[in-house]
Write a protein that binds this DNA or RNA. Structure first.
Lengths: 164, 164
DNA sequence: ACGCACCATGACGTGTACGTGAGATGGGAG
DNA sequence: CTCCCATCTCACGTACACGTCATGGTGCGT
């Protein structure tokens, strides 16, 4: 009664959503979700017996992450793919923390994840720098324009006073 | 002898470059320059008698500005067009500083320029915020991965010592 | 006046990031 | 079991930002 339609999984406890609900929650279309999957941006989600996709909360977070990267930061999907793949590596690293065998393989994953993170950080640093510069520039211009505006308003007021 | 090929304009003093040189200087293709002009991002440059385009230093700066907006900040050309149009308004405001007639018209231009600048600044502020967040996130992840890396390297060193 | 690199204008092609049906299947409500 | 909406898989369409010929004119050194 009190549980929403998509959370009635009392035994497994993990919530699963089908594509329509995920689309509503994230604000992207179903087409886009399938497209991201096709392009390797989203891991293929579970399926119901009939073939319907079942997304997890983790998937939803990832979708929101992808959208932020795209909309606010202007990354291409190819760049984002690299980034989420690095994220997957990190997850794998965390997941394989317990089994203490084959250390070199784990080190390799860690090194690749570190490399990916460094490259991402470099790109972001570049963008931050460019943006900060642009921000300053805009602020300065706005200030000058505002000054000019006050001058003009004063001049118009004065002219009106003279005409009167 | 000491003057580069494109600066031999001893009388007018203003340097003019044709499209190939501008392309080399800015790193964009000639096609892109014509495309920007077509789309209204660049004011139609001067032409030689034969029809060859002649760009000024100002044009070159504008091209570099456009590229920064596009590459580092992820604006679309349509958005950039709005922004450079605001820039043109600013230029006009400066140019029409002397003739002190028709003050209301000048105020109108100033107000529109201010509005455009404010909108741009809002977008940039948004992006700066998102980027800063992402930067922090990446730094934290990189630090964790680096820690994990050192742990692994130590573990491997220890294992090697034991085997020996 | 000749040669040749440079430039002009179309016109069509390409890659990215989806949009938009079409037609078939799934699956829970009555 | 039937209704009916949601989802499935192709497959073609589209807007943006150019790339890529094709064809022909320009500018200048010799």
């Amino acid at each position: 009664m009190s549980t929403p339609a998509s959370e009635e999984q009392a035994d497994t406890k993990v919530a699963r959503y089908q594509i329509g609900e995920v689309a509503d929650r994230t604000g992207v279309t179903q087409r886009t979700l399938r497209f991201y999957e096709e392009k390797g941006l989203l891991r293929p989600p579970e399926r119901m017996d009939g073939g319907f996709r079942l997304y997890s909360d983790e998937d939803v977070e990832r979708i929101e992450y992808i959208r932020r990267l795209q909309q606010y930061l202007g990354f291409t999907l190819a760049e984002i793919k690299e980034m989420v793949e690095a994220e997957d590596l990190r997850q794998q690293i965390i997941a394989t923390f317990r089994p203490d065998r084959e250390l070199p393989a784990r080190l390799d994953r860690v090194l690749r994840a570190a490399g990916a993170l460094e490259r991402q950080l470099e790109v972001v640093d570049h963008k931050v720098e460019a943006l900060a510069e642009m921000q300053e520039d805009l602020r300065a211009k706005l200030e000058r324009v505002t000054t000019r505006r006050h001058e003009l308003e004063e001049a118009i007021a004065q002219q009106a006073a003279e005409t009167k």
